[in-house]
Design a protein around this nucleic acid. Structure first.
Lengths: 372, 372
DNA sequence: CTGAAAGCGCTTACAG
DNA sequence: CTGAAAGCGCTTACAG
């Protein structure tokens, strides 16, 4: 297809019309009155020549690049960012846009890794601003900023004078549209599934990372229990580091109580992985003696644990797509009414539903049925 | 900084020089003879005005966009792709280039996931070609194609008339430069570490996925044993699905042998995770009774297993960076000698060293020292 | 040492 | 219904 050298003027010459006409028919300009015959001729000629528009030239002239900047944290540590990228890219492509990606370190500042021998990355804030500058210089039409755990981004970040949308993050001052997962109800759904399986004593392994997400999850957990009038949350909550060792320690503590829970909701799948180990050490089979539900649906963990870990999936794909569509709407409406070039009337962050992915770690309580 | 509206002509007017001069000093054009005084004036004026070049205009005129297309498989399943993106992006940025990313489904064709309600993705081949077309229309200067497991890409793929480089993949006919991990020696290093710890009977859990990578790893394993004159590979090799259940089954088989190995090298970390479970069921502590080494250094698994899994890390970051640099070299040399616009003299795929990441799963054999 | 002018490939008023 | 012309913001021969 698109042989480098064939341009709009080649099509025009070949079809015996002006470049204006070619541009009009290929872009389906509404105001252009062109005979069906001419349209057809132009189209077939363009196809025959393998014409593809030069988006760079178009961008320069129309002042619209059709490129969305995506500043994304932690692209190399978990699949979280990758899923968001995928959702955003598909939505953008469906509307004729392309993504330009700038990975930056997350707040932990993990960065390039010691093996590279390179200097440490700049801090997150610096590289965010650097990334935005570079994106703006490339004339992106808008910017997506993807973080995690619903992190609060400071009002001081400058995402430029183009429209911008936050993914899995919220603006401290609400100055940007944002989309996050409805983790509150996600946790509620997990509790409901556990209640439906017959559990009445349900423990919660909370994360100590201080992010908004674990807090939402814990609230959802508490409210779901309260709603159904089941007592059991009391005393069965432990907070620990958000990894397997934290989950292990928390689970050991919770399960050592006088009247231990028969099910555990964990703040993430790594903690759940620790809970599995605690259960194994205590001779508790899953789900025979203990049901476990994780959060995040990290397939690498959830699919490879035995039994598979039932987990609350974050709608990362949908969040990416929602954000891209929201951004494009902002871009195109700003183009329509030449007045505001910012998204206006920013509402509260959009909440997208979580989904409970059932694997094998939830069962009826107290059957004591030994595994395998 | 870069206020949208300030252009080269604003700088020129303000500094009292021509746009030609501004362009020359800001781009440090070698052939331009300009007084130090004028240079200084232009630079300060540009800085004062917050001038930033419009890369789109520059791209149109100079026929060089400064954008690298990155077609990347499986961005949402494991961190493999993310690490490659990170390496490529840093190397590209260091040389003034930006990445334009097109995620495509891997050969497994996992795709968008059922939760989206969208149509299934096209097959990998279609979306590869679609992605390349779109990148070419955006005037990228070159294309990076990132796969995994050293997959062989068919000669029929059309990466356009721009330079292209393969990452963790090789061209069937050697028509593209490529970079892969030296997994042969990576496996060798793992065996060496095990031998150094005193093991003489080492099992290998092979992956049944048929990709080149597991094959290289197995060869490296065999040769390393042969090299040291230690027998033990024989009979202690099992092939299974490349996940935890495969690893579990293979480990059970291998460990049930008459003279079971005291150490296991696993084709990936998921299989190693299965081996942990097998060991636990058999009452074998790690590393007291059994040492385990994984492959891939998936931190989500390796860091959260107990004890931490020693694993052979793939140099993904370096592969991404190597590929980006190789591509940019090709682009810039093609620009220099206006003759060839393809990378010429394509050598064998570059091999980048793996690194053994020691955690806690390797110890001296037969100590039988109980865990914790 | 410096600048006037052409032109990259398109889109967009505007004129007929 | 169709086309001639200007111009997006730069870079690049080329002339002085």
């Amino acid at each position: 297809m698109s042989s480098c050298s064939v341009g709009i003027r080649d099509v025009a010459r070949e079809a015996g019309v002006s470049v204006t006409t070619v541009s009009h028919v290929l872009n389906e300009v509404p105001s252009a009155r062109i005979s069906a015959e001419t349209r057809e001729k132009v189209r077939t000629t363009a196809a025959r020549l393998g014409y593809g528009p030069n988006r760079v030239a178009r961008a320069l002239r129309s002042r619209r690049s059709g490129v969305l900047g995506l500043v994304v944290e932690d692209v190399a540590t978990t699949p979280h960012a990758g899923r968001i990228i995928l959702g955003a890219e598909q939505a953008a492509r469906a509307r004729g846009y392309t993504l330009m990606i700038v990975p930056i370190p997350g707040p932990a500042g993990a960065g390039a890794g010691p093996e590279t021998g390179r200097a440490r990355w700049e801090t997150g804030f610096e590289s965010l601003q650097t990334g935005v500058e570079s994106l703006l210089g490339r004339q992106v039409d808008g910017i997506l900023y993807s973080a995690s755990c619903q992190r609060v981004v400071q009002a001081s970040v400058n995402l430029g004078r183009v429209p911008a949308v936050l993914v899995d993050a919220v603006a401290a001052d609400g100055s940007f549209p944002a989309v996050v997962a409805d983790e509150y109800n996600g946790a509620g759904a997990a509790v409901d599934a556990l209640l439906a399986a017959g559990h009445t004593r349900i423990g919660f392994l909370n994360s100590a990372d201080g992010n908004p997400s674990p807090h939402r999850r814990f609230q959802g957990f508490q409210e779901a229990l309260k709603r159904t009038g089941v007592r059991g949350a009391s005393g069965a909550v432990e907070t620990a580091s958000p990894d397997a060792s934290g989950g292990y320690a928390a689970a050991r503590t919770v399960l050592a109580a006088r009247n231990p829970p028969s099910a555990l909701l964990c703040c993430n799948d790594r903690m759940a992985m620790g809970a599995y180990r605690a259960a194994a050490e205590l001779g508790l089979s899953i789900p025979g003696d203990l049901s476990v539900v994780g959060f995040g649906d990290e397939e690498l963990i959830a699919d490879n644990l035995h039994p598979g870990l039932t987990s609350v999936a974050l709608p990362e794909h949908e969040m990416g797509a929602w954000a891209a569509n929201c951004l494009i709407n902002g871009i195109e409406s700003a183009a329509a009414d030449a007045g505001a070039n910012q998204l206006t009337g920013v509402p509260a962050p959009a909440l997208l539903a979580c989904r409970l992915v059932a694997r094998g770690s939830v069962g009826a309580p107290g059957t004591g049925m030994p595994q395998r």
